[in-house]
Design a protein around this nucleic acid. Structure first.
Lengths: 342, 342
DNA sequence: TTGTACGCGTTATCAT
DNA sequence: ATGATAACGCGTACAA
């Protein structure tokens, strides 16, 4: 491994002069510079980032800790983060927690050891211990998508309540009154906010809330099967289901089909978050979407601000709007049919 | 920032003793250990990974350099890589090149500076300069999905030729003879191997090869529109199209619809690589799939072998099988209909 | 079982 | 414009 000193020796200068040439961090005589540059080229010197980081206390590395790298929502977020970070010379370590607080904790511990410059975190639990660790180590952290209960922190998230409201109201507008909901884990803020929206929409239309219609899943495809079974057993049977996440929606669609029910002829189904490639070729389900890429970009931008200026100003909460996409082509009128079924 | 020395002072021992406690790297008296552990807890000491790396010359970091983080194929690969790496205590930096050799070069340069332990690379060009850089710096590298022309290197890839053959033969079996192909960039081995499979399938059935039927795109959705236009203008008009990648297939589907053609009633369409979520709810297109997650896992496992044992043994080529998924539900018989159209 | 001295590769400080 | 020295935080080699 060739070091600054090797280059310095070859060029007949001191190490610091080489450093100045490499980083343009000080005045260097043109002739000296040339000699140094030649030595660098000859020896194929590549500066050692670790040593630099040790000295500068900057790793130019961010971490994105997310809960499901399989979900198109998160991969789109990741793309937004990577783009923004790369544009500013930062690298992104992607960590997948699978909604497992233990995995998340492990990651955070190692990331702190690594002295990454900051992290974007989708928390998988409301436990605050690990976050205290972050602040103790002065590691900037921006939450994404989800709050941690009782912790005031920087966060970029979607307008979940509004989205839950919009989806539910859409169904109500189509004539549905027996509307069930597949929510996510109770302790996840995203799930509860969306659920709130659902509740408020029903209340706004004087539709009583049926506890039987409210189910909690895991935000994964697999959790839908059982829920669908339970919902279909409820009486009266719901005529519509609001899936609070894209994967659960896919799971529900499959489960409903397995039960012999057609969507939307026999039962209506709408979802929070889209399935990009799917709806591109099969524009079918009405969905409430968030701009995931923008969410990633904004979280990264905010994080970089915090990194640049650690002076503790007020934690910021950025709420991105959600958009209801009513699939006119086949969705809307078909869903209307479903309304007739009740 | 609290260091080993701070802990040492607090515990009344020397720095190295603390190090031994932390890393279990040497004998420590039980009582001493307890004192040290207490000091560590009191001071909330977290070892500095950078300093450790500088000394040990190991960063426990891998990079995954891929060409399109938007493509479900690559995100699935990423998941395989992340899982495998995490299980062995490694982190993964994900780098997205967008098929841009310049971006790729930038990444590689910075990754070398960072002294990552190894990388998994989907090369975006056949230029060998950057790869020479890697070997000069003794950085283990496993190619994934694609070769670099004229470079013998470790690689994990799918059986592209077989897949291209299978897709084409499938169409021939359905009665098609005027079969067009949307391939990827000429210089990308994946594209040319799949194209070879196509050619061989036609040859095996004595179907002459029509240069008009062979088009090159960018492996992205956007490139399909123009190609579809050109293909539809060919005479005789093809009755079937083989898309050599999932995104191009989606693009083609949309473009065909825009032209007023139904798939598969008016024209058949098959694809290399699946669109997981889409086909889960809309099992429609016949596709040739690779096990992307396994590809990521195997590439990572191979890379770790190389990292552990840098003794230069023969470069290894691992070829994963591909599977043709004929969508019976609606695909097969409908595609048969398409055959009648010719 | 514990400690001392030094080096990993870089750069900041201060001096010339 | 250039350089000597020290320090970043840790672990190895060697001693005790």
């Amino acid at each position: 491994m060739v070091t600054v000193r090797d280059v310095a020796r070859a060029a007949g200068v001191s190490a610091i002069t080489v450093s100045r040439v490499v980083n343009a961090s000080g005045p260097v005589n043109a002739i000296t510079r040339e000699r140094v540059e030649k030595a660098i080229a000859d020896l194929r010197y590549v500066p050692n980032g670790m040593a630099k980081s040790l000295k500068s206390r900057q790793t130019h590395t961010l971490a994105l800790v997310l809960t499901d790298i399989t979900n198109p929502f998160w991969t789109t977020v990741a793309r937004g983060v990577e783009d923004t970070a790369a544009a500013r010379g930062y690298h992104v370590i992607v960590c997948n927690t699978d909604e497992d607080p233990q995995k998340e904790l492990n990651y955070i511990n190692i990331l702190v050891q690594r002295r990454i410059d900051g992290m974007i975190l989708a928390p998988s639990s409301n436990n605050t211990e690990r976050l205290d660790l972050l602040s103790r180590y002065d590691m900037p952290c921006v939450l994404i998508d989800r709050h941690v209960k009782g912790k005031k922190m920087d966060i970029v998230r979607g307008d979940n309540a509004k989205g839950g409201f919009a989806l539910t109201r859409h169904l109500i507008g189509l004539g549905h009154r027996d509307i069930a909901i597949m929510s996510g884990p109770v302790e996840v803020s995203t799930a509860s906010q969306r659920l709130d929206g659902y509740r408020r929409a029903l209340a706004a239309h004087d539709i009583p809330i049926q506890p039987d219609y409210i189910k909690y899943g895991t935000f994964k495809e697999g959790s839908s099967e059982q829920i669908v079974k339970e919902l279909l057993a409820a009486s009266p049977r719901p005529t519509a289901i609001v899936a609070m996440n894209n994967l659960m929606c896919i799971g529900a669609l499959r489960a409903l089909r397995a039960e012999g029910l057609r969507v939307p002829e026999d039962i209506a189904l709408v979802s929070f978050d889209d399935i990009p490639q799917a709806s591109s070729i099969y524009p079918f389900l009405t969905v409430c979407v968030q701009d995931a890429q923008k969410m990633g970009q904004m979280a990264t931008a905010l994080l970089m601000e915090r990194i640049a200026d650690k002076a503790a100003s007020e934690p910021q909460e950025i709420v991105l709007d959600t958009t209801l996409i009513v699939r006119e082509s086949c969705g809307a009128q078909l869903v209307k049919n479903a309304g007739i079924h009740r």
